[in-house]
Computed example of a mutant assay.
Amino acid sequence: MEKIAFLGLGRMGLPMARRLAAAGHPLTVWNRSPGRADGLTGAATPAEAVRGADVVVTMLADPAAVTEVAGRFTAELAPGALWIDMSSIGPAAVAALHARLPDGVALVDAPVIGSVGPAATGGLTVFAGGEDAALDRAQPVLEQLGRVRRCGGPGAGAALKLVVMGAMVASVAAVGEALAVAGELGVPQDVAREVLAAGPLAGVVARAHSADSDFPVRLAAKDLALAGGGPVLAAAREVLLAHPSIADEDLSAVVGALRRARG
Rank of each mutant, 00 (worst) to 15 (best):
Glu194Gly: 13
Ile246Asp: 09
Gln144Leu: 09
Pro79Lys: 12
His209Gly: 07
Ala167Asn: 10
Ser171Glu: 03
Glu177His: 10
Ala119Trp: 02
Val141Pro: 03
Leu7Asp: 05
Val204Phe: 08
Gly10Val: 02
Gly228Asn: 06
Ala64His: 12
Glu68Asp: 15
Cys151Val: 12
Leu201Met: 14
Glu68Asn: 14
Glu68Cys: 05
Gly123Lys: 07
Glu184Lys: 15
Gly152Met: 06
Ser171Met: 04
Ala158Thr: 06
Lys222Gly: 00
Val172Met: 10
Val29Leu: 04
Arg19Met: 07
Ala96Tyr: 03
Phe215Glu: 14
Arg147His: 14
Gly146Trp: 01
Glu194Gln: 12
Ala225Lys: 13
Val66Ile: 12
Gly157Ala: 03
Ala53Thr: 01
Leu20Asn: 00
Val181Gln: 12
Gly52Asn: 05
Gly10Asn: 05
Ala158Val: 05
Asp103Trp: 09
Val239Phe: 05
Ala43Pro: 06
Leu219Phe: 11
Gly229Arg: 04
Leu233Pro: 03
Ser88Gly: 02
Val105Asn: 09
Gly230His: 12
Pro102Arg: 05
Asp190Gln: 11
Leu233Gln: 13
Val191Gln: 13
Gly155Asn: 04
Ala182Cys: 11
Asp250Gly: 09
Glu2Tyr: 04
Ala81Thr: 15
Met168Ser: 13
Leu145Ala: 08
Ala110Arg: 04
Gly24Leu: 06
Glu249Val: 03
Ala261Asp: 13
Ala261Phe: 10
Gly80Leu: 07
Met59Ser: 12
Pro244Lys: 00
Gly35Ala: 12
His98Gly: 14
Ile89Ala: 04
Ala235Met: 08
Ala192Gln: 03
Asp62Ile: 02
Pro118Ile: 09
Gly80Gln: 06
Arg100Asn: 10
Gly104Ala: 11
Ala96Phe: 02
Pro216Ser: 06
Gly146Asp: 03
Arg51Ile: 04
Ala17Ser: 01
Ile89Cys: 05
Leu82Met: 11
Ala197Trp: 04
Arg18Phe: 07
Asp223Asn: 14
Arg72Met: 07
Gly157Glu: 00
Gly129Cys: 11
Val195Ile: 14
Asn31Ser: 13
Ala178Pro: 03
Met12Ala: 09
Thr67Pro: 00
Ala220Val: 03
Leu107His: 09
Pro46Ser: 11
Asp190Thr: 13
Leu9Glu: 05
Val94Tyr: 01
Leu7Val: 06
Val255Asn: 07
Leu101Lys: 09
Arg207Gly: 00
Ala247Phe: 05
Asp62Gln: 07
Leu60Gly: 01
Leu142Lys: 04
Gly166Phe: 00
